[in-house]
Structure formats: structure tokens, C-alpha cells
Amino acid sequence: QGTEMEEKDYSETDGLSDKTTPSKTQKSPQKTTKKVKSALCRVTLLDASEYECEVEKHARGQVLFDMVCEHLNLLEKDYFGLTFCDSDSQKNWLDPSKEIKKQIRSKCLGRVHPPQPWGTLSPSAPSCRYYLCLQLRADIITGRLPCSFVTHALLGSYAVQAELGDYDAEEHVGNYVSELRFAPNQTRELEERIMELHKTYRGMTPGEAEIHFLENAKKLSMYGVDLHHAKDSEGIDIMLGVCANGLLIYRDRLRINRFAWPKILKISYKRSNFYIKIRPGEYEQFESTIGFKLPNHRSAKRLWKVCIEHHTFFRLVSPEPPPKGFLVMGSKFRYSGRTQA
């Protein structure tokens, strides 16, 4: 489950040497060679298959990501990315500007979840819609995206229609969906309900089934929410969720607060502390700053980067240009991809 890098040596001919020795007998021209080291990368894709490719040893993340997208025929690249696990087994997005060799383990995952996935994604890019569905199905099966029984059945039935096509009494006999996964704790009752719904979808194309799947998945309360463990000012365990609309606060799986992007004036971090500066309300005079405690400095920076990426992608018409000048304070990170706005 990840990227493994195996170094290889290749030789490149630079050309002929025109230098001679001081001796009377001139030596024959010698070829000079330069060893080029490459790395074999293995990436686990959303369908659990593996993709292998070779990249130059010091290649940056963008090179590998572009190769994976080309392999998958993925046109809408901005909705996807590669992840890797750090030494703390925490998930990080592969930085396209950094060398791959420092980011050994990686997976191909959906990076951001569009609020209107069926209308945002290009109709000419069915592969993008397909992989977004795979990502959501994986999130549902592992429990990262909680669903009710009714929603599990509905989404499962659309997944079956997209995968198996129309119900065929001769081909689909008995419990023909038992080999497919739809929920963390899948029951026979759920499978029977999925089969009942599947039989009613005659004539629905796989593409239409995927659109219906996305249309219903986006209604889930945790759809597109990237969760991060934290503590509030009183030391109580909470979860901070980053999504298209802003920053969400959860305690015991219940949302207790929400800060929309327009309400947030500034996002920052210092050591393991993460801060948001809030715009004053209608009856307030001053701005307020709210702080949260993250497990460590890397976690705080990771959350800060995710917030920057989400805010830029969903709110701005174009990414902000990097600051100019020799001396620049703070992090150099800037989101450089397209935006949805």
C-alpha cells in the first residue's frame, strides 16, 4: 500500500573527448559517461491496483502525479492527489514541489470533494467521476463517511448498477451482491434492500448511476470534510474539519461550531498551536482569535496547509501570487493549482 522506490543506474554518453596527453603517442578519443540514477515507484490506486513507473531519483512530486494521471486518463487533476504516510503514520498530501524520495509511502486519493460533483466535473472526463466514486465508496466502507441504513442501501444500489449494469434474472441469481462491499458492518438485510432497488434501475447507464451516487453522497454531513485531531482551549478532545465551506468543530462526533471562510480573516500556526482570526459579528466591535492545540508542530502545519488549499480552491478566482523580495517571513507554501471559482 504505497510507493516503493528502487534505485537503478543508467549510463549517458556525453560525447567524445578532444583532449590529448603530453606524450608523443596520442591516445584514442575516450567516451565519458555519466551515471543517471532512477527510482522505481509503486503507487496504490483507488481500485486497489498498483501502478509502477520509473522516475529520475531526484524527481519532484509533480512528475509522479502527472504520470499517474496520464496512466488513468484523468483530466480533472485538481480534484485528486497522492498521499504518503510520515514517520508518525499520519497522512500527508504529496507536495508537487518536493522530491519524491523523501515521501516513500503514497496512495492515489481524491484530494478535494466538489460541492456539486456532477455539475463541476467535465462530462468528457468520465474517469474523473469514476475515481471520485471509488474514493467515496472507500470512505463509506471504512466508516470515515458515516451513513444511515437507508443511505447505505441507496448508494449501494447505484454502485451495483454502475458496476453490474441492468438486473438480469438469468445472470443475477441468489445473493449476487454478497461479494461487493457497501458498509463497514454489512448485513444480509442491507444486501437484500440493495438488490430490491437495483432491480428498479433498468435502462440506467453506468454514468447516470455514478451521477446519482454522487448527488446523494454529497448530502452526507461528513462529505468532503478532512478531519484533524485537536484540543480546544480547555484541553477537551475535538476534531477540526476542513471543507469547501469553511472550518467545522466536532466533539463526540457532533458538530458544535462552524466558521465559514468569509468569516475567517487569518489562519496561522505556531509550534503545535493553530489559530484562526474571526471577523467581528454584527454587534461586535473587535476581531477575535481562537486557538487550538494540535498533537505536534507537523500536525499544525499540515492543518494550516489544508486550510490554505481549500480556501484558495473554493473561494478565490485565482491563486495568490507568491510574495516577492529577498527576505520573506513565514512559510513559503502557496497553493499553485487551479481554483473552482
Rank of each mutant, 00 (worst) to 15 (best):
K332T: 06
T151R: 11
Q285V: 14
I211W: 01
F314Q: 04
Q135D: 13
K324S: 14
L303W: 09
K19V: 11
K277Y: 05
E196N: 13
H310P: 01
S178T: 12
T25A: 15
H311L: 02
H58C: 12
N185A: 14
S49F: 04
Q135M: 02
S106V: 06
C85L: 13
F80Y: 08
E215K: 14
L190F: 05
P115N: 06
V306K: 14
Q26R: 15
E179Y: 10
D168V: 10
M5E: 05
N185M: 13
N273S: 01
K37W: 10
Y158M: 10
S268V: 01
A59Q: 03
L132Y: 00
S331D: 13
C128G: 10
G337D: 06
Q116M: 03
S124Q: 09
F65D: 01
W118G: 02
Y250F: 10
L94Y: 00
E210I: 06
R193A: 10
T339M: 08
P184W: 08
L74T: 03
M5Y: 04
F313G: 04
G2F: 06
Y10V: 03
Q116W: 03
F313R: 08
Q62E: 04
L248H: 14
I267L: 09
L136I: 02
L227D: 05
R271L: 12
A159Q: 15
S221N: 12
P117A: 00
K27Q: 14
E208N: 12
S318Q: 05
L121N: 00
F333N: 00
M195A: 12
R181A: 05
H229D: 02
